[in-house]
Design a protein around this nucleic acid. Sequence first.
DNA 1: ATTAAATGACACTTATAGTCCGTTGACTTA
DNA 2: TAAGTCAACGGACTATAAGTGTCATTTAAT
Lengths: 73, 73
Amino acid sequence: MSIKVKVGQRIRELRNELGISQEALANKAEIDRTYVTDVENGRRNISIENLEKLIDALQVQLKDFFDAPNFIK
Amino acid sequence: MSIKVKVGQRIRELRNELGISQEALANKAEIDRTYVTDVENGRRNISIENLEKLIDALQVQLKDFFDAPNFIK
DNA sequence: ATTAAATGACACTTATAGTCCGTTGACTTA
DNA sequence: TAAGTCAACGGACTATAAGTGTCATTTAAT
């Protein structure tokens, strides 16, 4: 599975834990609503700056974002 | 400090631990040498796919890459 | 002091990241 | 009936990352 898909799944997982919509997350992270949809569905090769914005909005540390079974090799 | 700079510093740190040149790392990750220079110096907003290539080449897990004082908020 | 390896700086093209407008369909509540 | 929220998706567009070339500078060894 590609890193894009893994990142998307993890973002969706954490967003659902927060109980907020894609649009709410997008607004919080100050990125486009349609872009969040694409990222969650593994269609975007997101840059580190936008990934940081999303992870901040999801209120987790970078290291904890990547501390999930999906990312371990 | 921006995430770009932090990522660059961390890559340089891990590369030095491995004791390899920028060019050797670039070859391992199948990325251009000058691109690695730019990333290490915080001049590139790297994508998750290229970051994964570099982290793989540095032989660390994503979560361990971000488990450094620089990245903790 | 000269050579060679390693790194830095930066301009440039092309590929694609990311935005903005909208529509559609599934589901929910009134 | 609607009327609202939400996610998925498309098309057109703009901004910028990817990728490369070239020359300058540093560093270490001879």
